[in-house]
């Protein structure tokens, strides 16, 4: 049944694609099997992360951007993964991003998929990555991933993107403070949306300042490094550095979208030329393998080590008879001995 579905997906059947996305998102056996096969056909898509505070206009921007990408590179299909938070209390979610993407409805080369975060912190990034891999294998040349930029898990999500766009709007809080520390560092492109509102120019110069400060810092570090090694600075300086541009848009009026698209395509070319495309791909795969390795090792561990042993060591630690550190040492030792026997 699954292999028939995968064949349909390869032939461009969108219902098959949609069904496989669900299987993968739900982590079913069929979904895991499908992804194992489809991963081998990935690696061509340009993944673009769009993050920023709620209401800054991310979905509206995705709408405008997608239309422009389709116009510029008509041979490429565009997939959109729009992530919204699940309610921590009920597990339900209202996924409303499509409301802002109504201009994209008539183009069958565009596929929009809404996704609830399902309360999984690190897991959100893995699920999103998995869905993006399905789209990649299905031949979508651009994959746009919209996430609410609020915390660490969103940073993880955008780390799987080749190009990360951080969106903010004027008047969302005191001068752009709504952009959380840390999220600025992951930006390849900064967008001040709602530039029709007062305060946009201040936001732009504030962000430009931040970028310049960050860039100056990295240059300084590099110069230290160069002095240490007495190398020719011209040769040793990576020609590849990218300074994040700060752009103004009015997404609802399609203003500034040409410039934004230029920046995105230039960034992709820059990544390819500098070898960073390859490096990012490798880093994403390594992270993916590490995460699965941790989960797999933990599962193995729990199969090898009786729960009673874990419980008894927890109890001992709670009585302050041993430290958690010592408990772990005992458990790992038990696991090692047990594994050696059972792996024969």
């Amino acid at each position: 049944m699954t292999s028939a579905l995968i064949d349909s997906l390869r032939k461009g059947n969108r219902l098959a694609l949609s069904r496989i996305l669900s299987q993968v998102e739900n982590g079913t056996d069929a979904g895991i099997a499908a992804l194992e096969e489809l991963f081998l056909e990935t690696g061509t898509a340009h993944k673009i992360g769009i993050t920023g505070p709620p209401g800054s206009g991310k979905s509206t921007l995705v709408n405008a951007l997608t239309r422009e990408l389709r116009r510029r590179e008509p041979e490429k299909k565009v997939a959109i993964i729009a992530v919204d938070p699940s309610s921590p209390f009920t597990g339900g979610a209202i996924l409303g991003d499509r409301v802002r993407m109504l201009d994209l409805q008539d183009d069958k080369q565009i596929f929009i998929r809404s996704m609830a975060s399902r309360g999984a912190l690190g897991g959100l990034a893995e699920q999103t990555e998995a869905l993006s891999q399905v789209f990649d294998a299905a031949g979508y040349g651009f994959i746009l991933i919209e996430t609410v930029g609020a915390g660490q898990s969103e940073v993880d999500v955008v780390n799987l993107a080749h190009t990360t766009i951080v969106v903010d709007a004027p008047g969302m809080g005191d001068d752009i403070q709504s952009i959380k520390a840390g999220i600025l560092e992951i930006a390849d492109i900064l967008v001040v949306n709602k530039a029709d509102r007062p305060g946009a120019d201040q936001s732009v110069s504030y962000l430009k300042n931040m970028v310049e400060m960050g860039y100056a810092r990295s240059i300084n570090n590099r110069n230290h490094h160069l002095e240490d090694f007495h190398e020719n600075p011209v040769e040793a300086t990576p020609s590849a550095d990218w300074i994040p541009p700060v752009l103004k848009t009015v997404a609802s009026e399609y203003q500034g979208i040409t410039e934004l698209t230029n920046a995105i395509l230039t960034h992709a070319a820059h990544l390819r030329q500098s070898g960073q495309w390859h490096a990012k791909d490798q880093a994403a795969i390594r992270t993916n393998i590490n995460h699965q390795l941790i989960a797999g090792l933990l599962k193995d561990f729990h199969q090898n080590v009786p729960a009673e042993l874990v419980d008894s060591l927890v109890e001992k630690a709670q009585k302050r008879a041993i430290s958690p550190n010592a408990a772990v040492r005992d458990l790992l030792a038990y696991n090692r001995n047990n594994t050696v026997e059972s792996s024969e």
């Binding site: 969108r14 219902l15 949609s18 069904r19 996305l21 669900s22 699940s86 309610s87 009920t90 597990g91 339900g92 979610a93 209202i94 996924l95 409303g96 499509r98 409301v99 109504l102 409805q105 596929f111 929009i112 998929r113 809404s114 609830a116």
Partner: peptide
């Protein structure tokens, strides 16, 4: 949503084709 379901909301003035298309993409 409060009953634990994932609700995709598509807004006003949808044609039957648009609704079916959204239902397909969202499975």
């Amino acid at each position: 949503r409060d009953d634990g379901m994932e609700v995709i909301y598509t807004g006003l003035r949808q044609t039957p084709e648009m609704i079916a298309e959204a239902a397909l993409q969202e499975d």
